[in-house]
Design a protein around this nucleic acid. Sequence first.
DNA 1: ATAGTAAGTTCTAATTTAGAACTGGGCAAG
DNA 2: CTTGCCCAGTTCTAAATTAGAACTTACTAT
Lengths: 155, 155
Amino acid sequence: MKWQETSEIPCSVARTLSVIGDRWTLLVIRNAFLGMQRYEQFHANLGVTRHVLADRLGRLVEADILEKVLYQQRPPRYEYRLTEKGRDLHPILMMLTAWGDKWMAQEHGAPLLFKHTACGHVFTPKLACSECAEEVLVSDVSPMIGPGMGKQKHA
Amino acid sequence: MKWQETSEIPCSVARTLSVIGDRWTLLVIRNAFLGMQRYEQFHANLGVTRHVLADRLGRLVEADILEKVLYQQRPPRYEYRLTEKGRDLHPILMMLTAWGDKWMAQEHGAPLLFKHTACGHVFTPKLACSECAEEVLVSDVSPMIGPGMGKQKHA
DNA sequence: ATAGTAAGTTCTAATTTAGAACTGGGCAAG
DNA sequence: CTTGCCCAGTTCTAAATTAGAACTTACTAT
């Protein structure tokens, strides 16, 4: 099965991964959340080859996760900004970070801390229920077949 | 830069992705959350080649995300179960699913719904603050340099 | 005139993946 | 008692992707 074919699978995880399921893609997005916008910044910061970086930025633009914005004429130069769809990846990034902090710990602790400006505290992200606002644990969730589960290849 | 080298980067996202930052790896984990445990189940359900599946299962065992449990002697057969470290990936999977449901919508809606058994409602996962329990939006988070940010290659 | 900057593109060699066939231990049916 | 089936891989070749370095184009600054 090829890269793009997974976007056809009736599974939201597969469909999400068809767009961001790549090491470099997610690192580009992470850096975009930290404020990076330009090709050379991404290149200097990530250990990715120029070829792959150009490819990934292109895919992200095509997927409407980043948008190219002209910041200079002569010669035309564009920077990459997160779209609303891209900014909506924030919870995923926060959860990836939290898992890494907990399970892939570094010598001296987390490289980055996050402050919740609304309450002023450094925090750890939790998964909460949209209906009762309580924390949701694995054992509290039961999956049910939804309306989109058609002729599935997947359980 | 090669696959495994990213695990050295002082960034929790990079370190997390060094373990699960692969299309097939995350799909294997998703299926493990839905109850799959055996090689042939994963193979039948995912469109992955046998070679890659064996490789990814091996890596996940080595990363202590899955564990091999003998379920039959003669010939010895093992099944793969999520460890605590693996079950801790649940929030990531829930967030990936939620993003896919919202932005990669299928014709008839979400293929899977999730019920929060504690309150009884079908829900959407939200990111909440560990300190004040309120929902956390992108604009409410400010990253700060943490203790683990040493001789960084990354901002 | 020379150097530098930004955002790529091009090239070759190495690595990874796809897809299909094969292995090997043991089972069950005819 | 032999043919076929199950499971969990391994092996094979061809195709695709990636790494790493050099090159390009259109400017600006010294």
